[in-house]
Design a protein around this nucleic acid. Structure first.
Length: 475
DNA sequence: ATGTTC
């Protein structure tokens, strides 16, 4: 990205000035100069397109980890007011609806656990189905799948996967209202019947990590984190169900946009007014997929616990938090002193409520919502908490963010060599797809340290802990 | 992200 096209407002805040005659809302880009320089110009084009959609409130924004996506950039945040013709966009949520990260804290320390890492890695790899189209032990009939879509993580706990205490620390307390399984196609449901409790592919992973550095001891204490502690992060989404909903509704919403007279600068921005039959239909289907993803991560939490107690009989794993980063949520925000209901699209961006937010569990109310920036498998991840001054509709970065395409990564790295190299660094990778490993090469991602620094500098979220990867089951 | 190209 050529920074000369931008105007810098603050050290980590930039805007794209409008061209003469260009009619759109403001565009704001959060991030440091080195991060923005490495971004594709497509990010600018895409976020400017988003800023031209009807009913946008404030600015269309990108987070420090943004990169080129389908229609909307990944790392894009856009809020719409239904009362002002605001829209809902399938491309603004993404194909992997409610993809997110469940983070578990353990009572194990590195020195107690390290000896059995090879055994742990093998056992996790056996227990956690991963890869494209990979199915698990659970096969659901249509009625049970409807229950998943309504019940989310609550359904999973009722089935014996995990404990009610987990639910307190899952976004939305484990389920969203407003799911309408009838709005989900039979094909989408069919694809999901065997995919509950599976990781998927691409950048999805289950990673055993060690707390390597604490940035804020007070907040770390509130989050139950300390140096040397073993954590587990589970990154996955709504699998075939969410993907098929995305595919189905892109077509429907494109027609709806045309019928509603909405000009789409890019057909990938397919959207409909929130207050339209198609918009409402998509929201019902999307909420069903959100609950599916929450249930999926709950089941994987249970499977992870089973493996850990097999290897480490004394192990106890508690849910630290579960955050989605591909959603649209109806939320109340203060706009110029006025309380307004907005439809906040976060695509490759996490919610990041600051201290005192009423939707936070009691335990975290004083410190703010835990935010996870998932890194690449070779570098590390960050735990942060929402900043009370967050200027981006309570949104923050979600990961390191790709720095190059999968295609470019494949041309540059070989999966086997990467696995060997990482093993030398004490990071054990288990995968069915060496091609996937090459696509996910640590070097294909932005520097996660720069992303976390910029996230804090921009006032989006504050760093609490840095986690170093030790064992990784890769999708 | 994805029964990895309808």
């Amino acid at each position: 990205m050529n920074l000369e096209r931008l105007r810098q407002l603050q050290p980590c805040l930039w805007t794209l000035p409008r061209a003469p005659g260009e009619e759109r809302a403001q565009v704001l880009l959060y991030g440091s100069a080195p991060l923005l320089v490495s971004m594709d110009d497509k990010v600018l084009e895409q976020i400017a397109n988003v800023a031209s959609l009807p009913g946008l409130v404030g600015a269309a924004m990108t987070m420090p980890d943004a990169h080129w996506g389908y229609g909307f950039p990944i790392g894009g945040v856009a809020a719409f007011d239904a009362e002002q013709g605001g829209v809902i966009s399938a491309g603004g949520v993404g194909f992997d609806i409610s993809c997110g990260i469940r983070c578990l804290r353990s009572n194990l320390n590195l020195e107690d656990a390290v000896e059995h890492f090879p055994q742990l890695g093998k056992a996790l790899f056996r227990a956690i189905p991963a890869g494209v189209g990979e199915e698990g032990e659970i096969k659901l009939n249509p009625e049970q799948l409807d229950q998943v879509m309504h019940g989310g993580a609550h359904w999973a706990v009722q089935q014996g996967y995990g404990t009610p205490a987990d639910l307190d620390y899952v976004e939305e307390q484990g389920r969203v209202a407003g799911a309408i399984p009838e709005n989900v196609s039979e094909l989408a449901k069919k694809r999901q019947r065997g995919e509950m409790g599976t990781l998927g592919s691409g950048n999805h992973y289950l990673e055993v990590q060690v707390v390597d550095r604490i940035f804020d001891p007070g907040v770390a204490l509130a989050l139950g984190l300390h140096e040397g502690q073993i954590l587990i992060s589970i990154h996955c989404g709504s699998r075939g169900l969410g993907h098929q909903i995305g595919t189905d509704y892109l077509v429907l919403l494109a027609k709806a946009a045309s019928r509603s007279g909405i000009h789409l600068p890019d057909r990938e921005l397919a959207c409909a007014p929130v207050k339209s039959p198609e918009g409402q239909q998509y929201i019902g289907a999307m909420n069903a997929a959100i609950n599916c993803a929450l249930a999926n991560r709950q089941i994987l939490t249970h499977l992870t616990r089973s493996v850990f107690t097999e290897i480490y009989p004394q192990a106890e794993l508690e849910t630290l938090f579960d955050v989605s980063h591909n959603t649209c949520k109806a939320e109340t925000h203060q706009i110029d002193g006025e309380s307004r209901l907005l439809y906040v699209h976060r695509k490759g961006a996490t919610r990041a409520f600051g201290p005192g937010h009423p939707m936070l569990p009691e335990r975290y109310r004083q410190v703010g919502q835990p935010v996870v920036i998932g890194g690449s498998m070779g570098t590390g991840s960050y735990i942060l908490v929402g900043d009370s001054e967050n200027p981006a509709f309570a949104s923050s970065s979600h990961g390191a963010g790709r720095a190059m395409s999968r295609h470019q990564a494949l041309a540059r790295w070989k999966g086997r060599a990467l696995v060997d190299e990482l093993a030398q660094q004490g990071i054990l990778i288990h995968t069915r797809s060496m091609r996937g490993v090459a696509e996910e090469a640590p070097g294909a991602y932005k520097d996660v340290d720069l992303v976390a620094e910029a996230t804090e500098e921009a006032g989006l979220a504050r760093r609490v802990a840095f986690l170093r990867p030790k064992v990784c089951v890769k999708g």
